[in-house]
Structure formats: structure tokens, C-alpha cells
């Protein structure tokens, strides 16, 4: 999953970025409102963490502009102001959630995960596909009783394919949403990792190739 952090206060920006990366997110950062708006309009983020007090363009202005331009990205507001008026102002402009500074990183992470689930119309943090179970909190994968050990990249790829289960997922989408693939020089890196995943998941196959288009994760036989 790919997240954008727009925060002008460097210590918070750096810590949240590192924490999210360590929990499997592909993370971009912006230090002011203008840069944040530009990044949010250029890239299909799964979640945007947006500080309210920003130089150049305030978080609320960024939020308003994004919604006016039709963006449906999940937005979590970070604010140091805790009055009802401030909180309502953010939500009413189209924020999905808010968190008051200082916050517990665990809570930020949980809210970000919940926003991502909602973004993909899911409620259950555990994804089940035939006998494959993915615990998105612990980030563990089991097939039947067998625990499958995956690398961070493999897990991120599998989770993205799983939340989009039944849909065609293009290479570009994988490129844009999965952990630092977009920074990878090798162009066939996605095919390589799909190969790793298929091998680790075993039979019957769950990831199917649609030639010229991308991949579909489904229990149905390859048609």
C-alpha cells in the first residue's frame, strides 16, 4: 500500500515515514502544502496523512482542492488543535479521519490500516481466499495449516493482489501501490516477484496472468 505524508515538522515526518515503511507501506513525503497537493494529484495513493498547519498551503486547503478535483483518496488529518470546531472543520471538508497530536504511532498505524481497508471496501482485517489466509495486522500468510514465510516485498505484492481479488491488476498499478517497486531499476522486477509468490503459495495456483494486461488473483481456474 502506498501512503503520502504531508507534514512540515521534520521529526514527525521522518518518524512516521520510517514506521510506515517498516510496516510494509510505500511512503512518499512532502514538507509543505503545495508539494503535498502536487504529489497527491500525481500519484494514486491509498492513504494521505495530512497535517493541518502547513506552510504555503494549509492542510485544509489541500484537502478542499483534492476533493474538489474529484480525488477519493483516504485522508487522515493530523492536527494539534483539538477543539470541536477544528475537528468538525476537517471532517466536513472531506477528511476520512483525524488524529490529534501528539498521537500514539500504533494508533496512527491502526487508523491508516482501517482507512486502507475501507478504501478497498473491506471490513475484515483478515483476507481469506480459498484456503489462503492473510492476516493484514500481523502480516502473516497461511495456506491451510502451512505458514508461508514471505519477504516484505513479497508480502506487500500479495496483499495488494489479495485486496483486489477478482479484479484485473495492471503492472502499472502494482508499480504505483507496492513497496518501493517504483524505485526499482529492473523493469521485470514485478514478474520476478510474481514468480517467487507463485512458488511459495504452491498449488492450486491463485495468481493468474492475463497476457498483455496484468494479473488476477482468484480461486477460479485460469480461463
Amino acid at each position: 500500500m502506498r501512503a503520502l505524508i504531508v507534514e512540515d515538522y521534520a521529526p514527525v515526518r521522518a518518524a512516521v515515514r520510517e514506521g510506515l515503511v517498516e510496516h510494509g507501506f510505500a511512503v512518499d513525503v512532502a514538507a509543505d502544502g503545495e508539494e503535498g497537493l502536487w504529489l497527491a494529484e500525481q500519484n494514486p495513493y491509498d492513504v494521505v496523512i495530512l497535517d493541518v498547519m502547513l506552510p504555503k498551503l494549509s492542510g485544509l486547503e489541500v484537502l478542499t482542492t483534492l476533493r474538489r478535483n474529484g480525488s477519493s483518496v483516504a485522508i487522515l488529518l493530523l492536527t494539534a488543535r483539538d477543539t470541536v470546531v477544528d475537528r468538525v472543520a476537517g471532517l466536513d471538508r472531506g477528511a476520512d479521519d483525524y488524529l490529534i497530536k501528539p498521537f500514539a504511532f500504533a494508533e496512527l498505524l491502526a487508523r491508516v490500516r482501517a482507512l486502507v481497508r475501507r478504501h478497498y471496501d473491506r471490513k475484515n482485517p483478515t483476507i481469506a481466499l480459498a484456503d489462503l489466509t492473510i492476516d493484514t495486522i500481523q502480516r502473516t500468510v497461511r495456506r491451510g495449516e502451512r505458514v508461508i514465510a514471505l519477504s516484505a516485498r513479497e508480502y506487500a505484492l500479495l496483499e495488494y493482489l489479495a485486496v483486489r481479488a477478482g479484479q484485473l491488476v495492471t503492472r502499472t498499478e502494482i508499480w504505483e501501490h507496492v513497496y518501493d517497486f517504483h524505485a526499482e531499476a529492473q523493469s521485470n522486477v514485478i514478474d520476478v516477484y510474481i514468480g517467487y509468490l507463485r512458488k511459495k503459495l504452491g498449488a492450486p495456483p491463485l495468481i493468474h496472468t492475463r497476457r498483455g494486461h496484468g494479473y488476477v488473483m482468484t480461486v477460479e481456474a485460469d480461463a
Partner: peptide, 15 residues
Amino acid sequence: ELRTPLAGIRATIEV
């Protein structure tokens, strides 16, 4: 004003 640095301290330590 104090919440912002506190948020920084807390996030840095927790991560």
C-alpha cells in the same frame, strides 16, 4: 505549540 514537538518526540521514540 507544545503538542507538535511532543508528537515528534513520541513518534520518534515509538517507531
